[in-house]
């Protein structure tokens, strides 16, 4: 891990090598062309990013201070309303419950994903070759399943009539089920009406789909720790627990910090799975920020100004977290 900043001559450092002496001096014209080349190569990509990401971001900001309803969508000039959209969302109960859902969900899902992922990563590092390959390939199935399919699949697993979850809970002895969940009869229990059970399923399906990435990254990190370090710790009489916290964890810290930030970003804006699990936007109680923004902007009558204001709040939060991510990446790798 400490070697990340030492330039690997082949991998990242091609551009850092000093220019070898040239056989012949290039003419002044070809030197000027040479200076311009990177910008010419960069231009198409930059135009796309500017047009499809930066300009819409600016537009979003502008729209958040306007009233954009059906008439404006059809082409009428939008009127500025100043900070009214923001005042309205900040005084709306749905905004605060969406914000709460977003934050609580992200906190729980990120913690669980990292915990499960790290444990599996450590497990992979200890397992024999054949077993660890089997685990990686199985986990890959969970990782690769498209979000929309994951959501539909988990809706089926937790279906009220024939879902396997309700069937399994029904198999539990009544007293145990009563003790654990406060109900004995699960036949026909609907998971997707209220906010809490919906989020329980959402958490399960997000953790299931995202722990493999954490596990594989942690494994890659573990493999990069020199074996001598553990040997030295063992020689000094450190037990497994102590060795983990004193050797493994500090060595993995850079990987962890990136994984934490990435997971927060992903779980903060979860949309597809929530939309499909909640089966649309009928229930305001389950909204998170992205679903709330979407619902304001695209249900009828559309209130795109309001939707934009909510989306701005979401984007600003995410950009702040992204700032942390960028700092870590820049620190670890000379970009």
């Amino acid at each position: 891990m400490t070697t990340t900043s030492q330039a690997n001559p082949v991998r990242g450092g091609g551009h850092r090598a000093p220019a070898p002496p040239r056989a012949h001096r290039p003419s002044r014209r070809s030197r000027r062309v040479g200076r311009l080349t990177p910008y010419v190569l960069l231009l198409p990509g930059l135009l796309i990013i500017a047009g499809l990401l930066l300009y819409p971001m600016y537009q979003l900001l502008v729209m958040s201070t306007q009233k954009v309803g059906l008439r404006q969508i059809r082409g009428a000039e939008a009127d500025s309303v100043g900070a009214e959209n923001y005042e309205r969302i900040l005084t709306s109960e749905v905004f605060w419950s969406s914000l709460r859902n977003t934050i609580v969900f992200a906190a729980v899902a990120v913690t669980l994903t990292l915990l499960v992922g790290t444990l599996v990563g450590i497990l992979l590092n200890k397992l024999g070759k054949r077993m660890s390959t089997a685990v990686v390939v199985s986990a890959m199935l969970a990782w690769a399943t498209p979000q929309a399919a994951v959501a539909v699949l988990w809706r089926w697993l937790f279906d009220e009539q024939s879902g396997v979850a309700n069937r399994a809970f029904d198999l539990l002895p009544d007293w145990l089920s009563e003790l654990l969940f406060g109900r004995a009869d699960w036949t026909g229990y609907t998971w997707f009406l209220e906010s809490f059970p919906t989020y329980v399923v959402l958490t399960l399906c997000v953790v299931w789909a995202s722990f493999p990435f954490i596990a594989v990254s942690v494994l890659a990190g573990l493999r990069s720790i020199p074996g001598e370090l553990h040997e030295a710790a063992r020689m000094d009489g450190a037990g497994a627990w102590r060795a983990f916290w004193r050797v493994t964890f500090p060595m993995l810290r850079p990987v962890f910090s990136v994984l934490v930030v990435l997971s927060i970003i992903w779980d903060f804006k979860v949309f597809t799975q929530l939309y499909i699990l909640a089966n649309g936007m009928g229930n305001k109680e389950v909204f998170n920020l992205s679903l709330y923004a979407y619902a304001e902007a695209f249900s009828s009558p559309p209130a795109m100004g309001m939707g934009s204001a909510i989306a701005v709040v979401l984007t600003v939060i995410l950009l702040i977290i992204t700032g942390v991510y960028v700092r870590q990446i820049v620190r670890q790798e000379e970009v």
């Binding site: 990013i49 990401l53 930066l54 819409p56 971001m57 537009q59 979003l60 729209m63 970003i265 804006k269 949309f271 992205s290 923004a293 979407y294 902007a297 795109m304 939707g307 934009s308 989306a311 701005v312 979401l314 984007t315 995410l318 950009l319 977290i321 992204t322 991510y325």
Partner: peptide, 12 residues
């Protein structure tokens, strides 16, 4: 920009 949420950008 890699982290800009599509869910927000869909509006504009």
């Amino acid at each position: 920009v890699q982290m800009v949420p599509a869910e927000a950008m869909i509006i504009p």
